[in-house]
Amino acid sequence: MPLPFLTADRAFEAGADDIALPYDDHDLWRRPYRPGPYRVGAAALLLLLASFVLLSAMIIAFAAQTGSALIVFGFGAVVVACALRILRLGVWVSRAGLRRVGFLSTVTVPWSQTSNIRTVQQPVRWLGLPRTVQGQALVMERHGGTQLPPLLTDHSADFLSRVEAFDRAADTIEVWGDEYRTS
């Protein structure tokens, strides 16, 4: 079974350092990096919780409590949906623009509306929590000087303890921006 989210790093691992945009079809939305271990671990724990909740729903249904079983099943389905959404979080790129997928919202910015994408040193949130630490962030400025929240940080769930992966992802997104902002 092909796993397209693993192809982000394969072009770099294969020694193809000269390939800036390693995808064949630039019209598809792609995440230019693998999900980090903390994000995958959180989703796995949620799916483990969901399996227990769904098993409980089945036991409740066998006890002839269909109303309660449907409520518990609905809760299990919400937990599964949250786990899948956690795996979708991040920055996605295509020929059309840049998409920042959050847990509850998604912001898509066409390349023509961006003026600058760069890596800066600034206080960043540690694993998305309120605590901030000094780190690197990939920021994007729109025309007119407005700025989105940081696209990537080196202390996020995708890049904590993976500095090389952050640098590679930031460089790749900057190259996508340079390629399609000018065309």
Rank of each mutant, 00 (worst) to 15 (best):
R142I: 05
R125N: 15
R88M: 13
L151F: 14
H143T: 12
Q121N: 14
G144K: 08
T114P: 06
N116E: 15
V78K: 00
A96Q: 14
S112C: 07
A57H: 01
V133D: 12
W126A: 07
V109I: 15
Q121F: 13
G97R: 08
S51C: 08
L87C: 05
R99D: 11
F103L: 14
M140K: 07
T108H: 04
A83P: 01
V139N: 07
V78T: 01
V124K: 09
V133K: 10
G97P: 08
D158F: 12
R142F: 06
A157R: 06
I86P: 00
Q147V: 12
R99N: 08
Q136E: 14
W92G: 03
V107L: 11
S51F: 05
R88E: 07
T146H: 14
G102W: 07
Q134C: 05
M58K: 00
L89A: 04
Q113Y: 14
W92A: 07
Q113K: 14
L54E: 02
F73Y: 03
V107T: 13
L49Q: 07
A69V: 07
L138F: 14
R100F: 12
T119Q: 12
A69Q: 03
A63E: 01
S115H: 07
M58C: 01
I71S: 03
E141K: 10
D154E: 11
S115A: 14
R142L: 15
L129Y: 06
A83R: 01
Q65T: 01
T106D: 08
P130A: 09
L148Q: 11
T119L: 06
M58H: 06
T146E: 15
C82F: 07
F75N: 00
H143P: 00
A96F: 09
Q121R: 13
R142E: 13
I71K: 04
I117G: 12
M58S: 03
V124R: 06
R88F: 08
